[in-house]
Design a protein around this nucleic acid. Sequence first.
RNA 1: GAUUCCGUAGCUCAGCUGGUAGAGCAAUACACUUUUAAUGUAUGGGUCCUGGGUUCGAGCCCCAGCGGGAUCACCA
Length: 578
Amino acid sequence: MQLNLNFSTMSISELSGQEQQRRDSLQKLRDLGINAYPAELFPVNSYANELKSDFEDGKQVILAGRMMSQRIMGKASFAELQDSTGRIQCYFNRDELCPGEDKTLYNEVFKKLLDLGDFIGIEGRLFKTQVGEISVHVDHFHLLAKSLKPLPLPKTDAEGKVYDAFTDPELRYRQRYVDLVVNPQVKETFIMRSKAMNSMRNFFNERGYLEVETPILQPIPGGAAARPFVTHHNALNIPLYLRIANELYLKRLIVGGFDGVYEFAKDFRNEGMDRTHNPEFTVMEIYVAYKDYNWMMEFTEQMIEQVAQDVCGTSEISVGGKAISLKAPFQRVTMRDAILEHTGFDIQGKTEDELRAACEQLGIPTDPSMGKGKLIDEIFGEKCEGNYIQPTFITDYPKEMSPLCKEHRENPDLTERFELMINGKEVANAYSELNDPIDQRERFEEQLRLSEKGDDEAMFIDQDFLRALEYGMPPTSGMGIGIDRLVMLLTDNSSIQEVLFFPQMKPEVFEKKGPELTENEKIVFDILSKEKSMDLNALKERSGLSNKQWDKSIKGLSKHGLTKVTKTDDALTIDVVG
RNA sequence: GAUUCCGUAGCUCAGCUGGUAGAGCAAUACACUUUUAAUGUAUGGGUCCUGGGUUCGAGCCCCAGCGGGAUCACCA
C-alpha cells in the first residue's frame, strides 16, 4: 500500500538539509558533465606554507586541498585552500575564469555548486592583495572530490581568538579525521609524536643497534605484571595472548648474539582506562649487551635530551605551566634516600612488619597480601613520586618488585633497577638484566607462589626463556619507555587520548531508524484511517493512550507525513494525508 | 568501581517559577571586481540523547537507561 512508498524514501529524509543540498549540488555537477570524483592524478607542485614563507611574485603554482572558506563579491571571490601544510588564500575572477559569454564555471560551479570542505585543485600564480595577503591568482580550478557532509568551521579573528571551535572530546576522538581537518594543533601533536619516534630511531641506529619485531600473539604473556587479553588460534586450537611486554623475546635475541636490539611495540593490557591508560599503548624497549644500568642512565638522559631537541627545538619544555629541563645529566636518587627525604623513614634493613607499621603511621592503607617490596613501592608511590618534577632517576628497587632484574652488586635485598621520573610520573624503566638462569627460575617460582595466593598479575613461568638463559646471555642492560607518556610530556597534553589517533571508546551505536510505526502510532492511525478526519480530542479518547504516549504518537505520525492537524476557531481537526 | 558535570539546528552555545524552541556562524536567494571572523537584505533549517512518570501542558520536574568529560579509587 501507499505506506511503503513513504517509507522507502525515508533514508533520504534522514539527511540534514545541508547534506541533502550537497547531494543536489553533486547531481547538478554531474548534469554539467563534471566528474566529482575524478580518477586521474592532480600534478601538485606547491604547498601553502612554503608559498607563504618563500613568496615569489608571479610564480606559477599548482596546488590542491580543501576549500575551507569562500568570500564572494560579485564578479570576484576569495577562497581559502587548506592543504597538508596549512592554508592559503585564492583569488577567483569571473571574467578571467570565463573569458567568453558562458559564465557557468564561475557563477554556477564555483559560487553555487562547490561547498566548504570540497577538495579542489588550483592552477595559478602567486601575488599579494592590496591588504598584503599572499594569495594565488587562480587561472584554472578543478573539482577533485566532493564533500557531502558539512565540517565544523572554527573561525579565527584578527586577534587570534577562535570562535565555534570543535571541542567536544567525544566527537573529536570518534571522528578524529574531522578533528585533524579543523584543529591544526591536533595535527601538530601527531607530527611531534612521529618526530619523537624518528629521533629515537636515529639515536639507536647511529649507535649500531638493530630495530627488530617480535611476536604480538604470545602463548605465554611474559615480561610484565598485568592482565592480558586472550584470543584463540583455530588451527592450533590453543589460547594465545596479546603481548603485555616484549622483554623476554628481545632478551632471547641478545642470547642469539645481537649487541643491541630495540623495538617500538604495541602492548595490550586488559585493565582500567583513564586519562593515562589505554588498553593498547606503545612502548619502546631496548637491550644492549655488555652494559649495566649505570651506563643505561647516561644513555637514557642523552636520548631524552636529543628527542626534546628534535621535537621541540629545545630541552627546556613547559608541562602544565611547569618549566622542566630535559638537559642531561639528570639527578640520581636511590629509592631509600627518596623515602628518607620525603618521610624521614629509613627502609634499610627493615622487616615486613616494620614496613607495615611505617605505612600505618604514614596513613597508607595496607593489606596482608603485600610483601616487603609492595609496601616500599606503596610508600614511594604515595609520598615521593609526585615530588620529582625535574627528571630524576630513582634507583635500586626492592628485589620482590623486579623478578627480571639482576640483584644489586652491593645489597642482595635490592636490584639494579632505575625508573626515570619526570613531572611526578614514571617515564622509563630499566635494569641490569638478570642473566643467571638459576636465579631467574627461582624468581619465577616466587611469582608462581604469588599467583597461587591469588595475584592474577603474577608472571607465568616461561620455560623456553629459561632455556635461552641457560645457553648464556651476556651482561645486558635493558630499558623501556612509554612512548605515549613521553609524547604527552613533549606536547604538554595531560590526556593519553590526545596523543593517540584513535583512543579506545565504547562502540558508537548507529541507530537504525526503522520505517516501522510504533505500536502506539499504529493504534492511532488505524482508528483515524477509518474515519479519515476526526476531532483531535475525540481521537485521543478513542486511542486510550496516556498523555505522553499520545503526544509521542501524534507527533510521530505527523513526522511520517501520514497525518495533518488543522486548527479552526475552537477545535483541532486531524486528517489522513493523501 | 565511586562521586560529579554535560547531552538543544551542520558547528559553538542561550533557553526565566513548567506555557507553541532562540542567537552567531554555516546553508539557500539577491546585491557587490583585492576581501579577510568580508558586508547588506530576505529565507529555510530541530526525535531538545533514549524510555517511562508527574502535569491541562515537560527542553525544563521525578525515575531508569545510553554516551561522554572531570576528579578519586584500582591497576603498571
